[in-house]
Computed example of a mutant assay.
Amino acid sequence: MPRFTTVALAAGAALLVRRAVRSRMTSAPLWPLPSLETPVSGYGRGATVPRRVLVTGRAVPAEGVVELRLEGERLPSWEPGAHLDLVLPSGQIRQYSLCGDPAQPDVYRIAARLIAEEQGGRGGSREVHEQLHEGVEIEVRGPRNRFPLVSSPAYVFVAGGIGITPVLPMVRAAEAAGADWRLVYCGRTRASMPYLADLVRIGGDRVTVVAEDEDGYPDLSFLAQVPAEAQVYCCGPDGLMDAVAAAMPEGRAPRLERFSAVAPADGTPFEVELRRSGRTVAVAADQSVLAAVREEVPGLMYSCTQGFCGTCRQTVLDGEVDHRDELLTDAERADSMLICVSRCAGKKLVLDL
Score class of each variant (00 low, 15 high):
residue 161 G to I: 08
residue 161 G to T: 08
residue 162 I to E: 04
residue 162 I to L: 14
residue 162 I to W: 13
residue 163 G to H: 05
residue 163 G to E: 07
residue 163 G to Y: 02
residue 164 I to C: 10
residue 164 I to A: 09
residue 164 I to K: 01
residue 164 I to M: 05
residue 165 T to R: 02
residue 165 T to G: 11
residue 165 T to E: 02
residue 165 T to Q: 03
residue 165 T to A: 13
residue 165 T to W: 00
residue 165 T to L: 09
residue 166 P to Q: 09
residue 166 P to L: 04
residue 166 P to F: 03
residue 167 V to G: 10
residue 167 V to T: 12
residue 167 V to L: 15
residue 168 L to T: 09
residue 168 L to C: 06
residue 168 L to E: 03
residue 168 L to H: 10
residue 168 L to D: 06
residue 168 L to K: 13
residue 168 L to I: 12
residue 168 L to R: 15
residue 169 P to C: 00
residue 169 P to H: 05
residue 169 P to L: 02
residue 170 M to N: 03
residue 170 M to F: 02
residue 170 M to G: 03
residue 170 M to P: 03
residue 170 M to L: 00
residue 171 V to R: 02
residue 172 R to K: 14
residue 172 R to Q: 07
residue 173 A to C: 01
residue 173 A to I: 04
residue 173 A to Q: 01
residue 173 A to E: 01
residue 173 A to M: 02
residue 173 A to R: 00
residue 174 A to W: 01
residue 175 E to C: 03
residue 175 E to V: 10
residue 175 E to G: 00
residue 175 E to F: 05
residue 176 A to F: 01
residue 176 A to D: 08
residue 176 A to H: 01
residue 176 A to Y: 01
residue 176 A to I: 01
residue 176 A to V: 06
residue 177 A to D: 06
residue 177 A to E: 02
residue 177 A to S: 13
residue 177 A to V: 02
residue 177 A to K: 00
residue 177 A to C: 02
residue 178 G to K: 02
residue 178 G to P: 04
residue 178 G to L: 05
residue 179 A to S: 15
residue 179 A to T: 01
residue 179 A to R: 10
residue 180 D to P: 01
residue 181 W to V: 09
residue 181 W to N: 10
residue 181 W to S: 11
residue 181 W to H: 12
residue 181 W to P: 08
residue 181 W to G: 07
residue 182 R to K: 14
residue 182 R to N: 02
residue 182 R to P: 00
residue 182 R to H: 11
residue 182 R to L: 13
residue 183 L to H: 07
residue 183 L to G: 11
residue 183 L to K: 04
residue 183 L to I: 10
residue 183 L to R: 10
residue 183 L to E: 06
residue 184 V to R: 06
residue 184 V to D: 06
residue 184 V to N: 07
residue 184 V to H: 05
residue 184 V to W: 03
residue 184 V to E: 04
residue 184 V to C: 13
residue 185 Y to D: 04
residue 185 Y to G: 02
residue 185 Y to S: 08
residue 186 C to E: 12
residue 186 C to T: 14
residue 186 C to I: 01
residue 186 C to S: 12
residue 187 G to Q: 05
residue 187 G to W: 05
residue 187 G to Y: 04
residue 187 G to N: 09
residue 187 G to H: 03
residue 187 G to V: 08
residue 187 G to P: 04
residue 188 R to S: 13
residue 188 R to P: 02
residue 188 R to N: 11
residue 188 R to A: 14
residue 188 R to Q: 14
residue 188 R to W: 06
residue 189 T to C: 09
residue 189 T to Q: 03
residue 189 T to I: 12
residue 189 T to N: 04
residue 189 T to E: 09
residue 189 T to L: 07
residue 189 T to F: 04
residue 189 T to H: 05
residue 190 R to Y: 09
residue 190 R to V: 14
residue 190 R to W: 04
residue 190 R to M: 13
residue 190 R to Q: 11
residue 190 R to H: 08
residue 191 A to G: 15
residue 191 A to P: 12
residue 191 A to I: 06
residue 191 A to F: 06
residue 192 S to P: 08
residue 192 S to V: 09
residue 192 S to M: 10
residue 193 M to A: 14
residue 193 M to Y: 11
residue 193 M to W: 12
residue 194 P to H: 09
residue 194 P to Q: 11
residue 194 P to R: 08
residue 195 Y to Q: 11
residue 195 Y to K: 11
residue 195 Y to S: 12
residue 195 Y to R: 14
residue 196 L to F: 13
residue 196 L to C: 15
residue 196 L to Y: 08
residue 197 A to Y: 15
residue 197 A to T: 15
residue 197 A to S: 15
residue 198 D to H: 15
residue 198 D to F: 13
